[in-house]
Design a protein around this nucleic acid. Structure first.
Length: 473
RNA sequence: GGGGCUGUAGUAUAGCCUGGUUAGUAUCUAAGGUUUGGGACCUUAUGACCCCGGUUCAAAUCCGGGCAGCCCCA
């Protein structure tokens, strides 16, 4: 008889229910008492810390320094850049009962409050480039269905905000940060992404150009994993971010902003998980392996001793040593599989006799007998293989789901199959609105410009713009 | 924005339609004992009707509102 109350009870093919269950049972997050808010539990927070550690090094390399700006933003700040104000207005939450004269918004993003300071700090071309990042929480009062990590009213993120003296530098910075995002997500999270520009309708409110990285979830919906914006001089003009150039001429700064959020943890869960639960890519896992001794009365002492020896040898992989005696080995296997630990090392009396251990891969469930003397060599090799395997599996999936369409009908059908569908279209906002209407809410995830012109699937006009259309989170 | 479903120990659930003993079961947790190579077993104990109001002699059950979660459509 199987006991169903413990492990993951939903198959991954039923992604929505599966996701909720894994988030809870792998102890990534819990629901908060307020709609759309979540509690990030240590298992998920350690993932976030690993991401932070990685990205802080990137920031350092790029000469970006961390800082912190206030959570509250005067309402009037939002009104200074018209498109920004319009774009964020529906999602703004305010605090009203303060002794301030005006309403105070909870930041949904910090362009306005940061650039207010920037305008004071920047006087000369010598002050540029100015490159600041902050790790913080933001509030966006979503009316849509919320879901842990994927859409919450509060989430954690990083937002980088740079000012340059030339347009080229800003453009370059937008591109290089998008590339850094791609690199991070692919190398650390093992999630393959598409990279490209956002359409007019989808770009950031107030940006001149937005670059995005997008991945595809198992249910055929795309997920935006990070964005990088070239703000041009839009905010500089609204906030008076000016400098005197080398010719003593006053100029507006050229600005960028870029960010990714804890949403990455949701993506990670959906992309790699399986029917047993979470599967963590080794590079993002805090505990890379778990050691489970197989304890029988007569041999337990020796087995434990050996286990501790191996635990010490593998200390740099942060092993979890599950020496509890009140759970059977089988119970422990399930437990740590559900939580996504990449490798499991089993040590029992039989192994002791053969001077070996049994190593089990989380991604393939493959059991490998490894001679004791080879463990230290074998573990990093296996972790590396798991990392690659997870990426390759996800890449194969993504590649298999990219298609193209020449008619609206074809587009509709292929989107229904859970694909990202390439189609020529006129990027004027209206055409995309039409396609959105016709395809039950699908929009372009990103666009690219083709050398050869094609026919817009809606207007029939010639165009060089190709949109990647799909449903999205 | 529109429509629908749900809420009972930490978790999963029975009971609700047709109001009426001490709210049942499994798991978790705690204690003790036997176990341990893919979720072992026995004994004992603790623990719950989302909140506010209404109807009634009597509400987990019926009604209204709120809060939260989920689904579908735009």
């Amino acid at each position: 008889m199987k006991k169903e109350t413990q492990g993951i009870t939903v198959k991954k093919e039923n992604l929505v229910d599966w996701y909720s269950e894994v988030v809870q049972k792998a102890e990534l997050a819990d629901y908060a008492p307020i709609k759309g808010f979540m509690i990030i539990r240590p298992n998920a927070y350690s993932i976030w810390q690993n991401i932070q550690d990685y990205f802080n090094k990137v920031l350092e390399k790029k000469g970006v320094r961390n800082a912190y700006f206030p959570l509250l933003i005067p309402e009037s700040f939002f009104k200074k850049e018209a498109k920004h104000a319009e774009g964020f207005n529906p999602e703004l939450a305010y605090i009203k009962n303060t002794d301030e004269g005006e309403k105070l918004a909870l930041r949904p993003t910090s362009e306005t409050i940061m650039y207010d300071s920037y305008s004071k700090w920047i006087r000369s071309w010598r002050d540029l480039p100015l490159k600041i990042n902050q790790w913080c929480n933001v509030i966006r009062w979503e009316v849509k269905q919320t879901k842990p990590f994927l859409r919450t009213r509060e989430f954690l993120w990083q937002e980088g905000h740079c000012v340059f003296s030339t347009e080229n530098e800003a453009e370059e910075n937008m591109n290089e940060m998008a590339e850094e995002y791609k690199k991070m997500v692919e190398e650390i999270l093992a999630i393959p992404v598409l990279i490209g520009k956002k359409s007019e309708g989808e770009k950031f409110a107030g940006a001149q150009t937005t670059m995005t990285i997008e991945s595809l979830m198992p249910d055929g919906k795309a997920l935006q994993m990070g964005t990088s914006h070239n703000l041009g001089q839009n905010f500089a003009k609204a906030f008076n971010v000016k400098f005197k150039d080398q010719n003593e001429k006053e100029q507006y700064g050229w600005q960028t902003s870029w960010g990714f959020s804890t949403r990455l943890i949701g993506a990670l869960t959906m992309v790699h998980g399986d029917d047993k639960g979470l599967v963590l890519p080794p590079k993002i896992a805090h505990n890379k392996l778990v050691i489970i001794p197989i304890l029988f009365d007569k041999t337990s002492e020796k087995v434990l001793k050996k286990s501790k020896e191996i635990e010490k040898k593998l200390a740099k992989f942060n092993p979890i040593a599950d020496y509890r005696t009140d759970y059977s080995p089988g119970w422990k296997y399930h437990e740590w599989e559900m939580k996504g630990i990449p490798l499991r090392i089993e040590i029992g009396p039989n192994d002791l006799a053969k001077k070996q251990v049994v190593i089990v891969r989380r991604d393939t469930n493959e059991k490998i007998s490894v001679p004791e003397k080879n463990i230290e060599k074998e573990v990093p090799k296996l972790l590396d293989e798991i990392q690659k395997n997870l990426f390759n599996k996800a890449k194969k999936f993504l590649d298999s789901r990219i298609d193209k369409a020449e008619t609206l009908k074809e587009l509709k059908e292929k989107i229904k199959l859970g694909k990202i569908v390439k189609a020529y279209f006129i990027d004027d906002g209206k055409t995309e609105d039409y396609i959105k209407e016709a395809t039950e809410g699908s929009t372009s995830r990103l666009i690219e410009f083709s050398k050869t012109a094609g026919i817009c699937i809606h207007t029939g006009q010639k165009t060089n713009t190709i949109g990647y259309f799909s449903k999205s989170y």
